[in-house]
C-alpha cells in the first residue's frame, strides 16, 4: 500500500530525502503538472497516535519550503502506484487550482479565550424567595447573559477584522463556545508571518482579559476546498 502525505506541483529538482511513517523513505510520483508525496506502507492502516500524526505533519512541513502544498488528511492509503497516478489524473485540474491558491501562503491559527472563567452572571436566591422575586431574578440573569454574549460577539468581530487585514482567506467562528470568543484560521503570505504575530501581540496587549493563542505556520489544511 501507499500512504499519502501531500499533493504538490511537479518538482523541478529532486526533493531532499525525507523519512515517513514506519521509517519508510518518502517518495514522489508526478502526473501532468502535479505530484503526490507518499511512502510505502505494510500492514494495517496507521493509528492516529501522536508519533504518527507528528511524522505525517513533519513530512508535509518539510515540503512547504516556498512551494504550494495541499496537505492530505491523515490516514489516506492507496493500493499501488497505478491507483495513485489515476487519482492525480482524475483530479489534476482541481489540484492545480488548489495549489495556485495556497502557493507562497501559510495557515495561522488564532483562538481568543477568556483569561479566567467565562464571566457568566449567576445570582443567588434570597432566603424565602417568593415566585415573583424568583422570576425577576431569572429575567435579570437572562438579560445579563444576553448582554455579555452581545459584547463578546462584538469584541470577537473586532479581533477578526484586525487579524483578517493580512489574510488572503479565512475561516472563523465567533463564540463557538462560551469560553472561546473566536476560533479562526487565516491564510497569509509567508512573508506576513511576523507582521501577523505582531498584530496578535498588540491585540493581546490591548485585551488583557483575553488570552490569544496563535499557532503556526501550518500547511493550508483549512484552505483545501474539495480537492
Amino acid at each position: 500500500m501507499l500512504y499519502l502525505y501531500a499533493i504538490i506541483n511537479r518538482p523541478t529538482a529532486p526533493l531532499p530525502p525525507n523519512t515517513g511513517l514506519g521509517g519508510q523513505p518518502v517518495q514522489c510520483s508526478a502526473w501532468g503538472e502535479v505530484a503526490a508525496i507518499y511512502s510505502h506502507h505494510e500492514g494495517p492502516a496507521p493509528r492516529p497516535e501522536a508519533a504518527h500524526l507528528w511524522r505525517h505533519e513533519e513530512v508535509v512541513e518539510r515540503l512547504l519550503d516556498g512551494r504550494g502544498v495541499l496537505p492530505v488528511r491523515f490516514g489516506a492509503l492507496l493500493p499501488d502506484e497505478a491507483a495513485l497516478l489515476a487519482l492525480l489524473g482524475e483530479r489534476h485540474d482541481r489540484f492545480v487550482a488548489g495549489l495556485a491558491r495556497v502557493a507562497g501562503r501559510v495557515e495561522v491559527s488564532v483562538r481568543a479565550l477568556w483569561s479566567a472563567e467565562a464571566p457568566l452572571p449567576v445570582s443567588r436566591p434570597a432566603e424565602a424567595e417568593n415566585g415573583r422575586a424568583y422570576l425577576a431574578r431569572r429575567m435579570a440573569e437572562a438579560q445579563a447573559r444576553e448582554a455579555r454574549l452581545r459584547e463578546a460577539r462584538q469584541r470577537a468581530g473586532a479581533l477578526h477584522a484586525a487579524l483578517n487585514e493580512l489574510a488572503a482567506a479565512h475561516t472563523h467562528q465567533v463564540l463557538p463556545h462560551e469560553c472561546i470568543l473566536l476560533s479562526a484560521a487565516y491564510l497569509i503570505p509567508r512573508e506576513a508571518i511576523d507582521p501577523f504575530r505582531a498584530t496578535v501581540g498588540a491585540l493581546g496587549a490591548a485585551n488583557p482579559d483575553l488570552r490569544l493563542l496563535c499557532t503556526g505556520p501550518w500547511p493550508a489544511y483549512h484552505f483545501v476546498e474539495g480537492e
Binding site: A45, E57, R73, G75, S183
Partner: peptide, 28 residues
C-alpha cells in the same frame, strides 16, 4: 491544533480511515 487539522481537514482521498472527529471542535 494539529489534531483539528490533520484528522479533520486536508485533501480527502477515497478510502481514508474514518476517524470520527468531524464537526467536533477539539479545542472545545
Amino acid at each position: 491544533d494539529l489534531l483539528d487539522r490533520i484528522l479533520d481537514k486536508g485533501v480527502i482521498i477515497s478510502g481514508d480511515i474514518t476517524i470520527s472527529v468531524a464537526n467536533v471542535d477539539l479545542i472545545y
